[in-house]
Design a binder for these strands. Structure first.
Lengths: 197, 197
DNA sequence: CCTACCGATCGGTAGG
DNA sequence: CCTACCGATCGGTAGG
C-alpha cells in the first residue's frame, strides 16, 4: 500500500527481466544501456527514471536470487525431514530454479563478479555462508550414517556446479524434457551421497 | 627453425598469459587493451605488433585449450586400458588442468561466448564433439557392465561442470592441498559411475 | 518519457 | 615500440 505497485513497478520489473536475458547472452559488461533500452522499448535516458545505474540492475538480480535460495534453505533447515530428504529438497530446488528461473539464476551465478564493493563482498559472504550450511547438512548426514563418508565441502562444490551444467541443456538442441533432466540429475547426485552398503 | 622463437614469440606468449589472467578476473569485455598493455609493460598501440585484435587473443586462448583436451582424448581413446580407467584418466586430466593451467582453462570455459563467428560455431562444435566422445566412453562402460546404468549425456554434464567447481577452490582462503582436492573430487566422481553391486 | 548532450573510454590505425 | 590520433560508443545528466 505504501508504494503504488502499478505501471511504475511493472516497468521496472520489465527492465530487470530484459536485463537478465541480455546479461546472460552478452554478459554484463558487453550489454549497453542503449541496447537494453531498445529491448524495453524506450530511450536510454528514460531507463534512469526506473533505476539509478547499470550496477543497480545487476545488484537487484543477484540479491533477489541470493534471497530466494537463503529463504529456501531456512525452510528446509526448519523442517523435520531426515537429512538426506532435506538435501534432496535443496538439490531439487536448485535444479528447478535453474530450469524455470534460468536467466536470473544464471546471471547471479556467473556475473556476480561484476558487482562493485560493498555489494561484491556482501554477495560473496552470502554465497560462502550458504555453502557452509549445505556442507553442515551433509556432515550431519554422514554422522547419522545416512550419507557415505566423503569430504563435505568438495561434495557441495561438485553438486552445485553440476547443477550449473543445466546451462548446457538449455543450449542443447535435442533436449530431453525438463522433467527427465531433473530426475536424471537428481538420481545421479543423490547417488553421490547415498550409502550403498 | 622456420620462425625465430626468440623475443617476439615470448612477448606474444607474455601477452596471451597476461590476457588470460585479466580475462579471468574482469571478463573479456571489461578488459581493455590499455589495461592489458600496462600489465605487459608497453603502450596499447604496441600490442598490435604482436597480435591483430582483441578477439584474436581470445581465439588463441580458447582454441589452445580445446586442442589440448582433444589431443588428450585421442591418446586415451587409442590406449588399451579398460573403460573405467580411461574415464578416470580423462577426469584426472581435467582436474589437473583446472588446477595447473587455471587461467587459460577458466577463460576457455567461461568466456568462449564472446568469440565471434565463425570461431564461435567452430568452438561450440568442438565442445559438443568432445562431450559426445566422453559420453560414448561412458555408454561403452555401461554396456560392458563396468559402469552403473545412468544417462550418459547427463553424467558428462555433471562431471565436467563439477570439475569447473575447482574455481571455488581457487578463490577459497582455507585451501586443502591440490593433491587432496584432486583425490576427493576423483573419488566422488568415479563413485558416480562405478557399479557397487 | 524525450531531446540533446557531457566527458571518458573504447579498439584500433598512421606514421615514424 | 612510441606519439598522436581516429570515429564510435559508453554510462549517465540536464532540462523540460
Amino acid at each position: 500500500m505504501a508504494k503504488t505497485p502499478g505501471k511504475k513497478a511493472s516497468k521496472k520489473g520489465l527492465i530487470l527481466q530484459k536485463a537478465a536475458t541480455m546479461f546472460r547472452h552478452r554478459g554484463f559488461s558487453a550489454t549497453s544501456m542503449r541496447d537494453l533500452a531498445e529491448e524495453v522499448g524506450i530511450e536510454a535516458a528514460s531507463l534512469y527514471n526506473h533505476i539509478n545505474s547499470k550496477q543497480e540492475i545487476l545488484e537487484a538480480i543477484c540479491f533477489e536470487v541470493a534471497n530466494l535460495f537463503n529463504e529456501h534453505m531456512d525452510q528446509v533447515e526448519a523442517s523435520s525431514a531426515n537429512t538426506i530428504a532435506k538435501i534432496e529438497r535443496i538439490i531439487r530446488f536448485h535444479i528447478q530454479q535453474m530450469i524455470d528461473n534460468y536467466e536470473q539464476v544464471f546471471v547471479s551465478d556467473r556475473e556476480w563478479r561484476r558487482l562493485e564493493e560493498p555489494y561484491l563482498s556482501n554477495f560473496q559472504t552470502q554465497r560462502r555462508t550458504y555453502r557452509k550450511r549445505f556442507a553442515s547438512l551433509i556432515e550431519k548426514g554422514i554422522d547419522k550414517k545416512e550419507i557415505r563418508s566423503l569430504d563435505a565441502p568438495t561434495a557441495v562444490l561438485i553438486i552445485l556446479h553440476a547443477i550449473g551444467g543445466i546451462e548446457s541443456w538449455h543450449r542443447s538442441s535435442q533436449k530431453i524434457s525438463a522433467r527427465e533432466l531433473e530426475e536424471n540429475m537428481l538420481t545421479i547426485l543423490i547417488d553421490v551421497l547415498r550409502k550403498n552398503d
